[in-house]
Design a protein around this nucleic acid. Structure first.
Length: 733
DNA sequence: ATAGGGTTAG
């Protein structure tokens, strides 16, 4: 040991004749107390080893506690000290369990506990249990905790308030609220910690209302809340997004003289930003004398999530240390507000600046931005980066990758990721089902759902939305009905509006319009705009004017701004030749100022995203694109193509003008661009913001045959894979 | 010598 030859401290030398057995006031303990760095600790360790003092259980426990609990010592070092102690006493065992329980390896705490029970002469005492129960909570092992609970009762320690409190915390973190409540009720003299454990546990479990009720009861029982209580209460307010109550809590803290620390201020700040009050947040932020990285990040996140990007950027640029969480807050702020391009550009800036290293959270947000944009090449490069760094895929990352590949049109890669991982949670399964659904592989999605049922992973409400969506895209009416019928009785999941909309979509698309109407009439909850929207969509496909008008007016009652409704109804009129209806609608839209959402398509070539709007000539290569488009039309017409104008909103009198408008559709521009610039071996991948129109759909099919190119088109609802003159949707969309 | 907390995430 280097410190043996170069002493940093002048320790008195002890002869081996020193009586160590009862020497509890040995001067070395004073040094241990004053020890401030690892070298000094090592030196004392060496000295004690040399003098044999380490082998006295009491002295050994002192050195061990110092190395285990000091902020500058590592757990590995403490473990080495422990292993040198021949007969650790109960205190030493307890301390080792304690440090493992709050270490990154809490399982070790359980294992040490078992060793103690088997190898040592000691039986766990009232100090042991809180530590080992904490370890069980950390690994979310309900059965381990239950066994410990049993031991507690057998040891007649069931009434100990410290142990009970740790059990409450344990049951809460395992989600067993009933057991937590039972233990809580059994505590005779509930202290503030008993209440805190219930309140924070409930708040974290999403039972915000119950947490607040618990706080109220606590007040009624005249138990004085402390800062931790208020953290729990604030966390409940934040979950409820209840600004008024949050403000009341803030003033309650001030009125009741609760010691305000930095953490409590940070939690209050977070409550204000999450409840969307930037004014309250800013006032508090400016008033806070002490700020840490969490304060800055919380404020940054608040700005970014509420769209105040300049302020968010300002915080990032002025905060004392830009850790990865700060960058993540900015990236996810952009991403969650649909500003994916900005999110990607911040990610690139982060990578270039090397200020902080992207972590899993960065990658999840960035992949989600890629998914929104359909930026396959960027998404691919992130996947490569993950492999390069050897980052192990957790379920979050797996889900994001599957979602990215699915939404970027590469369902094969999505499946590869899915099959490559060992661990799959409900989100991973659901994402894969959704991916297959959007690619029209309804049968495969359903098969996957059956395989999911062979695992222990229980489907949730989102899983069912995706399964029903798969049925809808693949026209699987019978299956859809079966799954919908299973939700409540078999899985205990009450169908929500999403599920009802899917069912209306399934029935309506299949032409069962009457049945869809009956289904809506029998709904136990009021139908939403999306339910009527699904019916209206079905009316468009099947050209049912009377029902379309009914659905449209119900939809507009609920959502008067819904311009999509007019477009759909207009399409129904056009399809059935009711041109007076079309012009009436057009007039109405002009008068009310409602505009059809502009169609736009995107295509990524060599990592650059090119965007096209209907009829735009902003692209630098616009001339070339239009002449390619002319060539395509000539070639298509000679192959027998007749333009289909039924889905044109504008009533244009002259026939060739109509045709011209059709040719300007953004997806056609993007396809022309793709034919020019995407390597022939690669599919042409296009993303459209609206649904693809019937004419563009037939054109894409023909192009795939005449030019022998694969075209993968993502529209608002799903993917269309065109190849050899056919589409994967089998014209069912 | 004992328990309880805040920010970034699908």
């Amino acid at each position: 040991m280097e410190t043996l030859s170069t002493p940093l401290l002048s320790l008195p030398r002890y002869s081996s004749s020193v009586t160590v057995n009862n020497d509890h006031d040995h001067p070395v303990f004073l040094h241990l107390q004053r020890c401030t760095n690892p070298s000094q600790l090592k030196q004392i360790h060496a000295q004690m080893l040399r003098t044999g003092l380490l082998f006295d259980p009491y002295s050994g426990s002192k050195l061990f506690a110092a190395s285990a609990l000091s902020p500058f010592s590592s757990l590995d070092y403490a473990r080495k000290v422990f292993d040198q102690i021949p007969k650790p006493n109960l205190y030493t065992w307890n301390t080792l369990i304690r440090v493992y329980a709050s270490s990154p390896e809490p399982l070790q705490g359980i294992l040490i506990f078992l060793r103690m029970v088997h190898e040592s002469p000691y039986y766990p005492n009232k100090f042991t249990f809180p530590f080992v129960i904490k370890a069980a909570a950390e690994i979310f092992s309900l059965c381990v905790g239950q066994a410990l609970h049993g031991m507690v009762i057998k040891s007649s320690l069931g009434a100990d308030v410290f142990i009970s409190n740790s059990l409450i915390h344990f049951y809460m973190s395992c989600g067993d609220l009933d057991s937590a409540y039972r233990v809580f009720m059994m505590v005779g003299e509930k202290d503030v910690v008993s209440w805190n454990s219930m309140i924070t546990g409930l708040a974290r479990r999403g039972c915000a209302e119950k947490a607040l009720q618990m706080f109220q009861k606590m007040e009624e029982q005249n138990v004085k809340p402390n800062d931790v209580t208020m953290l729990g209460v604030l966390s409940a307010c934040t979950k409820k997004l209840d600004l008024e109550f949050g403000r009341w809590v803030h003033s309650y803290i001030e009125r009741n003289g609760i010691s305000v620390n930095l953490t409590l201020n940070n939690a209050t700040l977070d409550m204000y930003t999450k409840c969307r009050s930037l004014e309250d947040a800013k006032t508090l932020f400016d008033m806070m004398k002490e700020k840490d990285i969490v304060t800055w990040t919380t404020m940054l996140d608040g700005y970014a999530k509420l769209g105040a990007y300049e302020e968010a950027r300002q915080i990032l640029d002025t905060m004392p240390r830009q850790d990865i969480a700060a960058w993540n807050a900015l990236i996810s702020g952009y991403e969650q507000n649909g500003k994916s391009k900005e999110a990607l550009s911040i990610y690139h800036e982060l990578q270039q600046s090397k200020i902080a290293k992207p972590d899993e959270i960065t990658l999840v947000s960035t992949l989600s931005a890629c998914a929104q944009l359909g930026a396959l090449e960027v998404g691919d490069s992130i996947h490569a980066y993950i492999k390069e760094l050897g980052i192990k895929l957790n379920c979050h990352l797996t889900t994001s990758l599957i979602d990215m590949y699915s939404k970027c049109g590469d369902i094969k890669k999505a499946l590869e990721v899915f099959y490559s991982v060992e661990k799959r949670d409900v989100f991973v399964w659901s994402a894969m089902i959704a991916g297959l659904a959007m690619h029209g592989q309804g049968k495969a999605a359903i098969d996957l759902f059956s395989r999911m049922q062979e695992t222990m992973i229980r489907p949730n409400s989102v899983t069912f939305t995706n399964v029903l969506c798969a049925c809808s895209h693949a026209g699987l009416v019978k299956e859809g009905k079966t799954f919908f019928g299973m939700m409540e009785p078999v899985y205990g999941i009450a169908p929500e509006l999403h599920h009802y909309s899917c069912m209306v979509d399934i029935l309506g698309r299949a032409g069962l319009l009457e049945e869809a109407v009956e289904f809506i009439e029998k709904m136990p909850i009021p139908p939403s705009d999306s339910v009527w929207g699904a019916l209206l969509g079905a009316c468009q496909i099947h050209g049912n004017v009377e029902l379309a008008e009914r659905a449209c007016s119900r939809l507009l009652e609920l959502d008067p701004e819904n311009n999509g409704a007019y477009v759909l109804l207009s399409n129904v009129y056009a399809k059935t030749g009711k041109w007076d209806g079309v012009s009436r609608l057009r007039k109405h839209m002009r008068v009310t100022g409602l505009k059809k959402e502009q169609g736009g398509s995107r295509i990524e070539v060599n990592g650059v995203i090119h965007e096209f709007l209907a009829g735009d000539n902003c692209h630098p290569l616009s001339k070339e694109i239009y002449s390619k488009l002319d060539e395509i039309v000539v070639r298509l017409k000679s192959a027998g193509y007749v333009p289909n104008k039924s889905q044109l909103l504008q009533l244009i009198e002259e026939d060739d003008m109509q045709e011209h408008a059709l040719n300007l559709h953004s997806e056609k521009l993007a396809i022309a661009f793709g034919l020019l610039y995407v390597e022939a071996s690669q599919p042409i991948r296009i993303i459209k913001n609206l649904r693809v129109c019937g004419d563009c759909h037939s054109v894409a099919k023909l192009i795939s045959r005449l030019y022998n190119r694969e075209i993968i088109l993502r529209d608002r609802y799903r993917f269309h894979h065109f190849s050899g003159g056919h589409c994967s949707c089998k014209d069912y969309w």
